[in-house]
């Protein structure tokens, strides 16, 4: 169940095993290249089916699945609106989807022969890029191009506006800060989940004697997986809050 790539222990998944069986064929090569995307698409399918079945016969008196989805959706809406205010409701679908997607991907690695796509940097970079682009789009849309540049310059007013140096310096600092945000998001998520997977793979190497340790690590992985999804969503919400016009300024 454990294979080692470049001296790194890794829990095997069904796509890896299939690729091993078909070794040397183009399909095996395809599977190995798109492994993470395939797992992501499986998760997309699972979440979509859950949402479909939950909302298919949605009624005022909900069933169990509808109740679970309502709790999740309602909770995420409260979470987003709690930070961004009632106006933040329009960001709930984006941030909520992000949370559910990351959570499922993080926990998917706990199922035997499956893998956490978020342990892959390309996946987390893709998600961070989505966040970065949407935040920048929102910033420009809400403040206007000049307004956003003004925001990046630290809204210089009065005497500070005449000292070109400080606004320009702030502008560059903010640009760097904006670029670092997706990088930090991607690296944090990938590193944590990758480390969790490593932890599980290492503890699985101990065999039967390592089962208690493995179970304990599984609990840690569940906790950390949930926490990482919350952190990613929370930071995304905060990034939106930072670029939205502040009521005190208006």
């Amino acid at each position: 169940m454990i294979e080692t790539h470049a001296a790194q222990p890794e829990l095997q998944n069904f796509i890896g095993l299939l690729a091993e069986k078909l070794e040397g064929t183009p399909f095996a090569h395809f599977l190995l290249i798109w492994e993470n995307v395939i797992f992501s698409l499986i998760i997309v399918a699972i979440i979509s089916l859950l949402a479909y079945f939950a909302s298919r016969k949605s009624s005022m008196i909900p069933g169990r699945l509808q109740l679970f989805m309502e709790l999740l959706v309602g909770g995420l809406d409260d979470f987003v609106c709690g930070i961004l205010g009632p106006d933040g409701k329009r960001f709930t679908p984006f941030i909520g989807t992000l949370f559910i997607y990351i959570l499922f991907m993080n926990l998917f690695g706990l199922i035997p022969f499956f893998k956490s796509s978020t342990a892959n940097l390309s996946t987390t970079v893709a998600l961070a890029l989505c966040v970065f682009l949407y935040v920048q789009y929102t910033a420009v849309k809400e403040n206007g191009v000049l307004g956003y540049i003004d925001h990046l310059m630290g809204n210089p007013r009065g005497i500070i506006a005449f000292t070109v140096f400080i606004p320009v310096l702030l502008f560059f600092i903010h640009i760097i800060s904006e670029l670092v945000k997706p990088l930090s998001l991607a690296l944090r998520l990938r590193s944590n989940i990758w480390a969790e997977d490593m932890l599980l793979a290492v503890s699985a190497q101990f065999g039967i004697g390592g089962v208690p340790l493995f179970l304990f690590n599984m609990l840690l992985v569940i906790l950390s997986g949930i926490m990482q999804a919350v952190v990613f969503s929370l930071l995304t919400t905060v990034y939106f809050a930072l670029v939205l016009p502040h009521h005190e300024e208006t």
Partner: peptide, 29 residues
């Protein structure tokens, strides 16, 4: 390629959830 595919995958999920979850369930709530 993987980054683009993952972005598409996320956008696909968002579109599907917008139809099945967010719109319907938030309206219902």
């Amino acid at each position: 390629n993987e980054i683009v595919a993952q972005i598409i995958s996320f956008l696909l999920l968002m579109a599907l959830l917008r139809v099945f979850a967010w719109k319907k369930l938030l309206n219902l709530l």
